[in-house]
């Protein structure tokens, strides 16, 4: 369909009353893509890091996520076992292959059956690590990858996310900056997740638990080892 491509581009240029852009204009636009200018960043997120954590928790809870702070990662398996029990969830757990969650002392929780990998239809509870947390709106950023499959974020009923406190940033712009610094190219999927899934399509009344997880639990780690 390259005929369609040419036709559309020709029409656009005719309507803009010009030919293809000059080299100078093109390099100006290339420059803008390479060094993205910042627009006004809401003051709300521009806080010292310690206050960003508080804001993240407030905003995530406002979006109906539950949040728990732990000191070290060694405490995660026990906390999750407790969460599962309190919410009457099945004691089978699928987790991301990422070592930050898969290599925790799970053996200490003898009654939990754990599996590592992508999620399937039968999985009800899962654990995965977040890339960053964005305080401005209490939003998690999760990246797809061999260690962090995307299905974990959507198929199970309960999604538990581990987020080191040092990975909480204020505004979105800082999250993008971290992503640009740490990744050569974007992964297939970048998920921004704020609370559990919901729908208001029936009589505009909000119901939690649509097609994605019905509950989202965030564990903030103050001292990840």
């Amino acid at each position: 369909m390259s005929a369609a491509r040419e036709a559309i581009l020709t029409t656009l240029r005719r309507q803009l009353k010009r030919g293809p852009l000059s080299d100078e204009s093109r390099s100006r636009l290339q420059q803008r893509l390479a060094q993205p200018p910042r627009h006004t960043v809401p003051q709300r997120g521009l806080l010292p890091h310690s206050e960003q954590i508080g804001l993240f928790i407030r905003m995530a809870e406002q979006a109906d996520a539950s949040v728990q702070r732990l000191s070290t990662s060694a405490a995660i398996p026990a906390a999750i076992a407790d969460y599962i029990q309190r919410h009457n969830l099945p004691s089978e757990l699928v987790m991301a292959p990422d070592p930050s969650v898969s290599e925790l002392p799970w053996a200490e929780q003898a009654h939990l059956r754990t599996r590592v990998g992508a999620a399937g239809d039968q999985d009800k509870v899962c654990v995965s690590p977040a890339f960053v947390g964005i305080a401005e709106t209490g939003t998690l950023m999760l990246l797809s990858g061999a260690q962090t499959p995307t299905t974990l974020n959507f198929l199970p009923d309960a999604h538990i996310v581990v987020l080191p406190a040092e990975r909480i940033v204020g505004p979105y712009e800082d999250a993008w900056q971290r992503l640009r610094e740490q990744q050569v190219a974007l992964p297939r999927t970048v998920n921004l997740i704020t609370g559990p899934s919901r729908s208001a399509d029936i009589e505009q009344t909000l119901q939690l638990g649509a097609h994605g997880p019905m509950q989202l639990h965030i564990i903030i780690l103050d001292h990840p080892s």
Binding site: T137, S144, A146, T150, N191, L192, G212
Partner: peptide, 24 residues
């Protein structure tokens, strides 16, 4: 649109699954 601070899911998709991805 809905008066939310942000939507629950904002998803960026770039290309097909990578060689070592487990899903996608």
């Amino acid at each position: 649109a809905t008066g939310q601070e942000t939507s629950v899911y904002t998803t960026f998709s770039s290309g097909p699954r990578r060689a070592d991805d487990l899903d996608g």
